[in-house]
Design a protein around this nucleic acid. Structure first.
Lengths: 213, 213, 213, 213
DNA sequence: CATGAATGAGAATTCATTCAT
DNA sequence: TATGAATGAATTCTCATTCAT
């Protein structure tokens, strides 16, 4: 006795799927991958463990998607900024600050990016995520370099540096250790200035050796 | 009547301890913490699982030491550079390059720093490690700021940015997905220039809003 | 949509829990705590090792409950006898005989009381159990002393003596070495008489020294 | 190059053997069988683990002997009392008190008798030990019965009761729980009176049924 | 002979995944 | 379709016993 999937049913299915994703994200954000066992995700989502497997073929794939979803969302925002009006420097600054600000609000994302998941597949996704972020920044960098606004530089490496710089700088105040949220805006501004100077400050590069006196 | 521990025996003991540490490090470097079960470490070290426990009270403590040892060594080198002759900028550049170069040779280190271990204790050590690296760079930064060589900036945040920048930039070419070792020196130089400019380039910080036009 | 737990399921769950307890008890009774590994209990109960942990958080807690359950049952019966009609001496006698008789039928209990478990937590439970038995007998003793039926005596110590006396006397014919079940009723009566005389026989206590001649 | 065993050597051997036994006994007395691993015994004896195996073929046999030695010593003392002058009742009382007093001084013994060792062989020895104690008391009982001093009773069972009574009564104040040694002599006297009454108090046995009203 | 490092067979526990209801 | 109980492979850690030095 097979029924067609009614629209209502479709909706409920999509709903459950989403609830699982949300639950998984929340658990990782709260207690890291360690705390995100299938049973816990199921409980958080108000479903049974068995149901998780109706929507996701394995734990790995679930978390790959959790990460992917978060990244997609983040990248979308960043791309919006990058494509907006303004000088390359300004757009870069705004992108960094935007990311940082959200990282403060939902510590999950930034934290997950430096976390090695317990699983190879998820690991791969994590690296892909970092690369995607890099790509967004690479775009601005290239535009800035092309327009002469930024000095010549390896955009691949520099964009990775940017991602690393703010990721790391955020982990300190965001990670499990520090919970005090003091100086939020200060930290954000310092980070963005750091990245900006790194990219813009052409004159800074000391002639090899000459500096050493 | 108690026999003295012969020098030969002493050596073998120290040897085994070292072999365990080396084996553990190698496994982490190769396959991440995932691959580093006690049984695997024992096999790699050419010992039995039981023997691991003669030298280390628990898996956690073993890996805390693996990390700690690597960090101590690295920090020592960096501190040497930081305390050497030269301008702050030059010392900073050399420190970054030195680190990056070694990271290329022994991918383990840089990789372990972004790895979330399966264990809370090791996790704590990992965070401590990152902070220690930050501290080294903070020293140069402060000196540079004090001498007027660097512009005013939050040394705490900036040092974290530096660590993050090169860590991240290295993970790409170093991590599990690394695509050949091409451009090694180029990458290293780009990274160090990035950090240098970020720290030195005072003029770069665009007045808030003015840039946006 | 959450399904209700069907009565059938409920039953099976309670069933499994009970089966585990029974299996554990049986193994202890048969081969002592030595023979009662989780794997063995699981096999005996017709379950997997993992399932044990769905019902009990740890091996210790399982055995604490095994003991506790047995003791609770036993104490209940004894208390019933103690609270019934009759002279203190009679109730005491009946309590002892009742215990002894059951000990013959299910050697487990008496045997477990002298077993030192491999686990501190269970050990504590075992000691608590002995004390509980003692308390039951203490009640009759006190009543008998108060009514003048028994001579003045330290009820704490005497009740422990009673528990020890019949426990020990039963271990012989009951323990792993037991040589057939001959003389069951004889043994039971002898034990109860022993205890009774010990408690009742006021005149018996020889004046200190006078006897020695 | 085999030397004859010099008397000196013999002595040292015997010495070591004894030291191992003493060390083992001490550890059991202090921390129970749980605490008496071979390594611990070796350390306590000032020897190597390997040496333990020169003197004892296995852990079991070591502890069988530890128990056996303690029992032999105890039995010797008790037999001395039993064979001394005096009425059966008096000798019985003195034997019980003597045992109890020593149990207070070295809690090990009494405690070990109710402890189930981790090992089948030791277990067997433990049971044998209890029987041996019983035998000593059986001797006095029989003499008392024969001389008419004690009423007719099953000496096998009664002697077991005696051993159980004082063992149990001692475990309370002696075991891991109570450390306060208050009332030492009181307890001892109460126990011995209990046993005495149990054995002597002929009149006490209520006519079956008559008591029940 | 003495040593104590090395061994490795267990034992407890966890958790992703399956499947009868 | 949803459930969650059951599974059992995988992993850490312990400790009696052996054996090269």
């Amino acid at each position: 006795m097979r029924y067609k999937r009614s629209p209502l049913m479709e909706e409920r299915l999509a709903d459950n799927r989403q609830r699982i994703l949300v639950a998984a994200r929340k658990l990782v954000a709260t207690g890291g991958f360690r705390a995100a066992q299938i049973a816990a995700v199921a409980a958080e989502a108000g479903l049974s463990t068995g149901s998780i497997y109706r929507y996701f073929p394995s734990k790995s794939e679930l978390f790959v998607e959790v990460l992917g979803e978060a990244v997609r969302h983040e990248v979308e925002i960043l791309r919006g900024i990058v494509k907006s009006e303004g000088s390359a420097a300004d757009r870069l600054r705004r992108a960094v600050e935007s990311f940082a600000r959200r990282a403060f609000e939902g510590p999950f994302l930034a934290y997950a990016f430096i976390a090695e998941p317990a699983d190879e597949e998820v690991d791969a996704e994590r690296i892909r995520a970092r690369r995607e972020f890099g790509n967004v920044f690479k775009t601005v960098l290239r535009e800035g370099i092309a327009s002469g606004e930024f000095p010549q530089q390896d955009a691949d490496v520099a964009s990775a540096c940017i991602v690393g710089a703010f990721t790391e700088a955020l982990v300190g105040p965001i990670g499990p250790t520090h919970r005090g949220e003091r100086r939020r805006e200060e930290v954000i501004e310092t980070i963005s200035l750091f990245c900006l100077r790194a990219v813009v400050g052409a004159a800074a590069a000391p002639a090899r050796g000459s500096v050493r006196r």
